[in-house]
Simulated scan of single mutants.
Amino acid sequence: MRFIILIKSRITPILLLFLVFFASCKKDPNKQVDEGKVEAGFYHSEDIGWTMEIPQGWEVMQRDDVQDQSDKGLKAISETIGSEIDVSGLKQLINLKKDRFHVFLSTSEKFDLTYEGEWEENNEALKQILYDTYTDRGIKVDTSSSSSNIGGLDFNVFSIKLYGPDDKVILYQDMYNRHINGFDFAATLNYLKPKEKNEILRAWKGSKFK
């Protein structure tokens, strides 16, 4: 089973709730992405054939901030599964933030299918690993699976509620993913408040795919 491949494109969201702050991005946003282009308030990925508008008030995250959190997530998952993970093929696409709790993350990684149903099988295995990564660290979570149509394409959605010590929800995570153009494509929405959730969800649902 090649579920390790899929893990790489989801490592960024893990443990993101422990961030104290994100620095504002004052650099060229096109230097903060591994693939695609930011122009006139839109992001476009050639690999995925995906275009999304950047909502007002949301900023492109700096590469160093994203890498720092990716490293934390990678370490957490490696400890959970008991092996190292190679992330050399992972591409950071557009990553946006409003504040510490409201973040949009997107990644892609080449995923060549070797048999029918392989991607779906790996995706199911990934859900358990994500659940275990949180619970192994004493974080109480609830999870659910669903599907959603984004820009005319059906995406798998894995939703996570994270709770604090007082059983109050401290973060929601909705992880959207699908196999597209030979890539494992993932987009994650981290949110807490309805207003900010609706802002980024509106932009994400307004995505266009070739």
Rank of each mutant, 00 (worst) to 15 (best):
3 F>C: 07
3 F>P: 13
4 I>K: 15
8 K>F: 00
12 T>K: 06
15 L>V: 04
16 L>K: 14
18 F>P: 05
21 F>G: 12
23 A>P: 07
23 A>M: 15
24 S>H: 13
24 S>K: 15
26 K>P: 05
26 K>L: 13
27 K>D: 12
28 D>N: 15
28 D>F: 06
28 D>I: 07
29 P>T: 07
31 K>D: 08
32 Q>Y: 00
34 D>Q: 03
34 D>R: 03
37 K>G: 04
39 E>W: 05
39 E>H: 13
40 A>F: 02
41 G>D: 02
47 D>I: 12
48 I>T: 09
51 T>N: 01
53 E>A: 06
55 P>K: 08
59 E>R: 09
62 Q>W: 02
64 D>Y: 06
65 D>I: 03
66 V>H: 03
67 Q>V: 09
70 S>L: 14
71 D>M: 11
71 D>E: 15
71 D>N: 15
72 K>W: 10
72 K>F: 10
74 L>Q: 14
74 L>N: 11
76 A>C: 09
80 T>A: 06
80 T>N: 08
82 G>V: 06
85 I>W: 05
86 D>M: 07
87 V>Q: 07
88 S>T: 10
88 S>M: 05
90 L>W: 01
93 L>Q: 10
93 L>N: 07
99 D>K: 13
103 V>M: 08
103 V>I: 15
103 V>R: 11
104 F>S: 03
104 F>V: 09
106 S>R: 09
108 S>D: 01
108 S>R: 07
108 S>N: 08
109 E>R: 12
109 E>L: 04
110 K>E: 11
114 T>S: 11
114 T>H: 09
115 Y>I: 02
115 Y>E: 11
121 E>W: 06
121 E>T: 13
123 N>I: 07
124 E>F: 06
128 Q>C: 03
128 Q>P: 00
129 I>V: 15
133 T>V: 09
133 T>L: 02
134 Y>M: 08
139 I>H: 07
140 K>S: 13
142 D>F: 07
146 S>E: 04
146 S>Y: 01
149 N>M: 13
149 N>W: 06
154 D>S: 11
155 F>T: 03
155 F>Q: 01
156 N>R: 08
157 V>N: 03
158 F>V: 03
164 G>E: 13
164 G>N: 15
167 D>N: 15
168 K>V: 13
168 K>S: 14
170 I>L: 14
170 I>Y: 06
173 Q>A: 11
174 D>L: 05
174 D>P: 04
176 Y>P: 01
179 H>K: 07
181 N>E: 02
183 F>H: 11
188 T>F: 01
188 T>P: 04
189 L>M: 12
191 Y>S: 13
191 Y>I: 08
193 K>G: 09
193 K>I: 12
194 P>D: 15
194 P>N: 14
195 K>W: 01
198 N>E: 11
199 E>L: 03
199 E>Q: 13
199 E>F: 00
202 R>M: 04
204 W>Q: 04
206 G>W: 02
207 S>G: 10
207 S>H: 01
208 K>Y: 00
210 K>L: 01
